[in-house]
């Protein structure tokens, strides 16, 4: 008992130190990787980490949204249109379109909070497809099928990717901390309570539909932020980045990392974006690498990649124990 307490105490101290160390390492990465392509991939990783973590915030409330990439698209297109047609500065369009995305999410979340489980997932899937069709039908306003080009840059005049790198690193950190605080506060507990039993949750006074809408609002705010940031970084938008398959890939990022853990989406996004990059030479065959990663996780790690250290540890102790037994006999 005493020993367990002391390890827990030590972990309380080492945890923040480990996280700070990780952040420092990530912040120093551009020094080692000068290639703009690698920096570009890392920036995309930051953007998708925000999207994946905010996806999970909605999931803990017991809702499985399949419109998350579409909401990223709403944020992206709102920011693009506001800066391109209204001439607003990207520094205004990014927070503004995140707020509007959250508003749209909550507006849609209200009727959708009537739908449960699979029907919610599918209803949101249809909504996401509808959003993409509306963008296609938007003509010159949204660029339709050919996409939108000539969007003002966030940091005009910089050719180097490094300023963008630090901007998105900061954005990802702020988002992760905010979503972490929400999940491990009373709000997060209430969301998890609703997910476990909505009848019991309302019987103790938790406003079920209110909290479900709040979760959607928070999730959409951050994914809108990611989308708007992406717009002013990429400066070119195409609808296909936000369609149903894009949502499905976001879901994969979350599931492969482990949906039951806060770190899951972060780890999953990093693995699924970075590892296939090592196999770029395979060209047409490279999707097989992604499929292989997914397959390994599905068959060997039921709880996702976050459970890997624990699995290794238990395998090791098992081996040690069997050795002991064989020694004894």
């Amino acid at each position: 008992m005493n020993r367990r307490l002391s390890t827990r105490g030590r972990r309380e101290l080492t945890k923040p130190a480990v996280y700070a160390g990780l952040v420092v390492i990530v912040a120093l990465l551009p020094l080692f990787f000068g290639s703009p392509y690698i920096q570009h991939m890392l920036i995309l990783t930051f953007i998708y980490i925000i999207a994946a973590v905010s996806f999970r915030t909605i999931v803990i409330s017991g809702q499985f949204p399949l419109a998350h990439a579409a909401f990223m698209g709403i944020g992206a297109y709102l920011a693009a249109m506001a800066s391109k047609w209204l001439g607003l500065s990207p520094w205004i369009t990014i927070p503004l379109s995140a707020l509007v995305t959250a508003g749209i999410g909550m507006l849609i979340g209200y009727p959708f909070s009537r739908l449960r489980a699979l029907y919610y997932a599918m209803g949101s899937l249809f909504f996401g497809i509808g959003v993409i069709q509306i963008i296609y039908a938007g003509g010159s306003w949204t660029g339709g099928y050919s996409g939108l080009t000539g969007i003002p840059a966030l940091l005009p005049g910089t050719i180097s990717k490094i300023p963008y790198y630090y901007f998105f690193l900061g954005l990802a950190l702020v988002s992760i901390i905010a979503l972490y605080r929400i999940e491990f506060s009373r709000i997060g507990t209430n969301l998890k309570a609703i997910a476990q039993s909505h009848v019991v949750a309302s019987s103790v006074g938790i406003n079920e539909s209110g909290y479900r809408i709040l979760a959607v609002g928070v999730g959409c705010f951050f994914v809108g932020l990611a989308g708007a940031g992406y717009t002013h970084y990429n400066m070119v938008l195409s609808c296909s980045s936000f369609n149903f398959m894009a949502t499905l890939w976001l879901v994969m990022y979350v599931l492969i990392g482990g949906i039951n853990s806060f770190a899951g989406p972060i780890i999953g996004t990093i693995i699924l974006i970075i590892i296939p990059e090592f196999f770029r030479d395979l060209k047409m065959f490279s999707p097989f690498v992604t499929a292989a990663i997914l397959g390994i996780v599905v068959y060997l790690m039921p709880q996702g990649l976050v459970s890997l250290p624990q699995m290794v540890r238990s395998r090791l102790t098992e081996r040690r124990n069997t050795k002991k037994v064989s020694h004894a006999s």
């Binding site: 998890k192 476990q196 009848v199 019991v200 949750a201 309302s202 019987s203 406003n207």
Partner: peptide, 24 residues
């Protein structure tokens, strides 16, 4: 009134089959 509003007015209840927040 909705369930949670009634709870806030001061009616608490238990359930026959007793669902819990099992993972808490």
């Amino acid at each position: 009134k909705k369930s949670h509003e009634i709870a806030r007015l001061g009616i608490g209840r238990t359930f026959q089959l007793n669902p819990l927040f099992g993972n808490f």
